[in-house]
C-alpha cells in the first residue's frame, strides 16, 4: 500500500484491487449498453421477421458502399485504440499520442462518411416524416409496403443515430485522454484510463459490426449498388 501511495484512492487496499474494479466497472456499464442496443435490436427483429420482404427492399436502398467503408474505418480505429493501450503500458508516450490522435481521426472520418450518407438518404427521399415518397415504393416491382419501409428507415436512423451519439461520447473521452497524455499523467502504472476508454470504444465498434448486416446487408445486392 505504501509503495503505491498517490496512485491508489483512499478507499482501496492496493493498485491491483483498483485496476480490477475499474475494468469491472466498465464491463458492467457495457452490459448495460448491450441491453440499451438490445432493446432496439429486439424491436427490429420483431418487424424484420414479420415484414421480411419490405425490410429487404428498404435495406437495398441504403448505401452499402459507405456502410462497408465505415466498418473498416471503425475497425482501423479500434486497432489504433488498442495500440494506444499498448503504448501506454509499454511506456511510449509518443506512440500513445499518435495512436490517440489517429483514433480520433478515424472517428471523425466515420462521421464524414456518415454525413455524406445521411445527405444522400435525404436526396433519395429516404427520410420518413421529412422527405419520403410512399408512391415510389408502391410502384416498385414487386411493390413494397410504404408503411413497413418507413418502419425500417426509422430503425435505421434510430440505430445509427444512437451509435453516433456513442461515437461522440467516445471522441470526447479520447480528447480527454489526449489532454492527459500531454500532461504526462498516462504512465505504465496508470494505464487504466486508456484501457477503460478503449473498452468503450471497442464496444461501440462491435455495435457497428452488427448494424452492418442488420441494416445494410438485409437483402441481395447488385454491383450497381456500390456507389457513393
Amino acid at each position: 500500500m505504501s509503495t503505491n501511495r498517490g496512485l491508489v484512492a483512499h478507499h482501496f487496499e492496493d493498485i491491483e484491487q483498483q485496476r480490477d474494479v475499474e475494468a469491472f466497472g466498465m464491463w458492467m456499464f457495457l452490459a448495460t449498453e448491450i441491453l440499451i442496443f438490445g432493446a432496439v435490436f429486439t424491436a427490429y427483429t420483431v418487424y424484420r421477421l414479420r415484414y421480411a420482404a419490405d425490410f429487404e427492399a428498404a435495406s437495398s436502398k441504403l448505401n452499402v458502399l459507405i456502410g462497408s467503408i465505415n466498418t473498416i474505418v471503425l475497425l482501423t480505429s479500434s486497432l489504433t485504440m488498442v495500440l494506444a493501450v499498448h503504448a501506454t503500458r509499454a511506456g511510449r508516450p509518443k506512440m500513445l499520442m499518435i495512436c490517440l490522435l489517429l483514433t480520433i481521426f478515424f472517428g471523425l472520418t466515420f462521421f464524414g462518411f456518415k454525413a455524406v450518407e445521411y445527405y444522400e438518404d435525404y436526396e433519395e427521399a429516404l427520410v420518413p416524416g421529412l422527405r419520403f415518397d410512399p408512391g415510389e415504393w408502391a410502384e416498385r416491382s414487386p411493390p413494397a409496403n410504404a408503411g413497413h419501409v418507413q418502419l425500417m428507415l426509422v430503425f435505421y436512423y434510430i440505430m445509427t443515430g444512437l451509435h453516433a451519439v456513442h461515437m461522440i461520447v467516445g471522441i470526447g473521452l479520447l480528447t480527454w485522454l489526449v489532454y492527459r497524455a500531454r500532461r504526462g499523467t498516462l504512465t505504465p502504472a496508470r494505464y487504466m484510463a486508456v484501457e477503460v476508454v478503449g473498452l468503450y470504444w471497442h464496444f461501440v465498434d462491435i455495435v457497428w459490426i452488427f448494424l452492418l448486416p442488420l441494416l445494410y446487408l438485409a437483402g441481395t445486392h447488385r454491383a450497381s449498388d456500390l456507389h457513393f
Binding site: L30, A31, L35, G38, T42
Partner: peptide, 12 residues
C-alpha cells in the same frame, strides 16, 4: 459482466 449482458439480451 459480459455474459450477463448477453444472457439478459437472450431473455429479452
Amino acid at each position: 459482466a459480459a455474459l450477463a449482458g448477453l444472457f439478459w439480451l437472450v431473455i429479452l
